[in-house]
Design a protein around this nucleic acid. Sequence first.
DNA 1: CTGAATTACTTAACATGTTTAGCAATTGGG
DNA 2: CCCAATTGCTAAACATGTTAAGTAATTCAG
Lengths: 142, 142
Amino acid sequence: MPSTDRSLPIALLRARERVMGPIRSLLSGAGLTEQQWRVLRVVQESGPIDPTQIAEKACLLLPSLTRILQKLEEKQLISRERDQEDRRRQVVQISAAGEKVITDNLEASLELMERTRRKMGAERYEALLDLLNELDQIELSD
Amino acid sequence: MPSTDRSLPIALLRARERVMGPIRSLLSGAGLTEQQWRVLRVVQESGPIDPTQIAEKACLLLPSLTRILQKLEEKQLISRERDQEDRRRQVVQISAAGEKVITDNLEASLELMERTRRKMGAERYEALLDLLNELDQIELSD
DNA sequence: CTGAATTACTTAACATGTTTAGCAATTGGG
DNA sequence: CCCAATTGCTAAACATGTTAAGTAATTCAG
């Protein structure tokens, strides 16, 4: 057991890779990356929404999101149009094909997380989420 | 507060970004990326070592490490030579300039993590590390 | 001893992360 | 009203993540 176990940055990295591995495998079957999936879910859950809000909810920077939206549009999983009130803005919507991708994969995706939760124990799982959110808040106040 | 707070993958992502932000700022002053720094520290701590072991300790895949070692060699922070026993293998060593980068930045880097630990509280900080390592172990047994 | 695995690493191709710069639309102070 | 600042998004450059393929050195079964 290397000393990197007690390094917070590396522990966070390892844990995330471990959790995302199975999810990536699932999504690669649908021809989607993890980030494309995250964006698609945000758009599906929120309804018509602009890129700035998508970036916030999906935890992505705008330059990354720009490329991801281009890819999703190429795949015809979303549609985009200019906002008529403010023409700097766009309105992004999920397409029927996009909805189908969601319904085809959401259940299995949720099941993967549920399995992790069971294996870890609900209490410890919630405690981990609480500590992670606390860390996110605490570092904010620099 | 969006529902993504209760999504483990996103919580892990956010926490990691929050922790790494200040460290990235520090290292960019030294002209290093987070990963280059991680590799340099592993090589410094371990002494002469081969890329496969570096990848394991620094939590990187070999293709990424190949490029990072090339960059570090260009910057003359490390040196590489073939292993005489097994010529598929390399032996990587830190240079004097590399040692200097470490001594110039290690203290501030450790101080950043120590500050996080204090702000969060030692107990909660250790609990978080334990839960992250537990998650890493549990997902392994798929 | 020899050719088929295996190992250690590299290369390539594509996607994203990160920073900086750029452009067009909008807003707000004088 | 008007131009400077701001906002929303895109482009570009560089580094890394991820997967697949490639190469050279080594090992091992027959």
